[in-house]
């Protein structure tokens, strides 16, 4: 069983937004699935944090939720990224990159 680490706090939003940006509109299960797959099973999104995060982002207007049908004709809610969401994603990526570079520098020198 590959090791599963928890998602670092504050990055869940970014991961969800990026997932939606890169791919087509998805419903909640798909988002969690994709994150898990792409991270090669390292990162697992807990349902307990996924749905609150989705609701929060809905309120903030970063994503839009629309009811649609799956391939099996089941009703599901598909999320898409809004323009505001795209902007938010960019800014979060930027700050994440900065923080990472800084951490990397510290780890290098010590």
């Amino acid at each position: 069983m590959p090791t599963r680490d928890s998602i670092p706090p504050g990055t869940l939003d970014m991961l969800i937004l990026k997932t939606l940006a890169r791919h087509r509109p998805m419903h909640g299960f798909e988002i969690a699935d994709v994150i898990q797959q792409i991270s090669e099973e390292v990162l697992q999104v807990e349902e307990g944090s996924l749905y609150p995060a989705l609701q929060r982002m809905l309120i903030k207007g970063w994503i839009l939720g629309e009811w649609g049908k799956t391939s099996e004709n089941r009703k599901a809610r598909y999320y898409t990224l809004t323009r505001a969401g795209r902007k938010q994603l960019e800014s979060e990526l930027e700050s994440y990159g900065r923080v990472n570079a800084a951490i990397a520098r510290i780890l290098e020198t010590i």
Binding site: H27, G28, F29, Y51, K75, A76
Partner: peptide, 10 residues
């Protein structure tokens, strides 16, 4: 209701 349905689906 939306939320409940969504979570049930998940």
């Amino acid at each position: 209701a939306d939320l409940a349905e969504e979570m049930q689906f998940h």
